[in-house]
Simulated scan of single mutants.
Amino acid sequence: MRWLVFSPTPTAPLTAGNRVRIYNMLSAIRQEGNEICFFYTGREGLMPESLSAMKGQWDLVDFIEPTEIKRQPKGEIFNIDDWIDAETIAEAERAIQQLQPDVILVNYVMYSKILDLAPASCVKLLDTHDKFGDRHLLLDRANIPRNFFWTSPDQEGVGLNRADIVVAIQETEASYFSEISSSEIKLLKHAPAERATTSRINMGLFGVIGSNNRINQKFYQQLVDEWVRSASPRMHLFVAGDVCGSIDVASQNVSLIGRVDDLDEFYSTIDIALNPLVSGSGLKIKTLEALEYRMPIISTREGMMGFNAVHPFHVLESVQELVACSKEIQEKPDLLSGLADASTILLAEYCGNWRSDFQHLMSSIERLHVEKANLRTI
């Protein structure tokens, strides 16, 4: 089948969790023998090297440059279509007419208006990435400045109802979407990847990696501050990713290493991965990456959202608890093997569930494709 994909974020370079999700999901779909026509709708700008890299990833790549980018709503919330401009709609309509896709996949509910352009013969798929209804209230409670997109549950439901199938990335969001939408809801978490692994020797080297969004900025700064205040001199924290540009620290126990081009190198540098996020939504790609590398991981409960975590070091309630547990495991290295075993078990369960969920999703798309094709012949 020919898939026409619209995304407000590119798939190169893979410097943020949403980019990794889109790339891995489309790669899995393409491996099933499908053709991927990728249209980047340009909200994050475009470097020539990014366009070149994406052309090597997909069967067809095009760039739609928006004529207007809204950053703040006129009222308390964004309406569901506030982010999509007339030029993007016009270019999307031309692409649909020219390419005659079997499936249209739109990333993010605020771009769901594109699905209204789909012919009756086309399967309409929406990958939500996150829950945006009342997202501003979640940010307010966490004392994080409102950013990106937020709307009301009613407006979010309008966007979801444009799709034949809505994809949620964790169970709680799937349940919420089923309450506000009549569309078919499918669960598909981030696609797991095969990673190189190394042995752990517990030298007291801890690491975090993240993109430069407001939620990461807040909790990574809290982690660094608590580390400087409480960690022992034998413990060292490596902070990687674009979030380093927003971290303020002056300590020999913390290294800001910035954007990492080679994840293998980063994870081979550290003994234990950390996830300090205390609030947020969605499924945390940084947690999955650490598990893929068979890393022992110490995480807040929020950082493990979407995983069936049971180890006490996986369900911590605060950054302070996370640093305290980091100290404990550095002082008691025998704890490391049990933590590593817990990561291995979590990953195996996750991979099995993902393969099953992916096949269920693809079967539903194929079923709808056949049904719509039969309607054309009646």
Rank of each mutant, 00 (worst) to 15 (best):
M305A: 05
V310K: 15
Q31P: 10
Y108S: 11
P48N: 04
D261N: 12
Y108I: 13
P8V: 11
R376I: 15
G157R: 09
P119H: 10
L347S: 03
I69M: 01
A28G: 12
F219G: 01
F149H: 02
S178C: 14
M1V: 10
Q217M: 11
F358I: 01
D225C: 12
L4Q: 12
P119M: 03
N216M: 03
Q170N: 05
S199N: 10
L336Q: 07
H236F: 05
I215S: 04
A231R: 00
V254H: 07
L223P: 00
D261H: 09
M110K: 05
R43Q: 02
A174C: 08
G245T: 06
G17L: 01
G207P: 03
E179M: 01
V61M: 12
D82G: 07
M25H: 03
R367P: 10
N34Y: 14
T11K: 10
N308F: 10
E173N: 09
G338S: 09
T172F: 08
R94L: 14
I89N: 03
A95Y: 11
Y111T: 12
E87H: 12
E321I: 04
H190G: 07
V167S: 05
E265G: 14
R146A: 13
T151N: 11
G133T: 01
Y220G: 00
A12W: 08
E292R: 10
A250T: 14
N213H: 12
E366Q: 07
I378W: 03
Q359M: 06
T9G: 15
E44C: 09
A174W: 02
N212K: 12
A174K: 02
L256H: 15
I29E: 10
F78G: 00
D164R: 06
R259A: 02
M110Q: 13
N213W: 02
D248K: 04
G75K: 13
D116N: 09
A168K: 12
V109Y: 00
V224G: 01
Q97E: 14
P296S: 08
A163Q: 03
I272Y: 09
Q72V: 12
G133W: 00
A191N: 05
S232L: 07
G280Q: 13
E184I: 02
P312M: 08
E317G: 15
F78R: 00
G204T: 08
L125P: 13
M305W: 06
M295V: 01
C37V: 14
G280E: 07
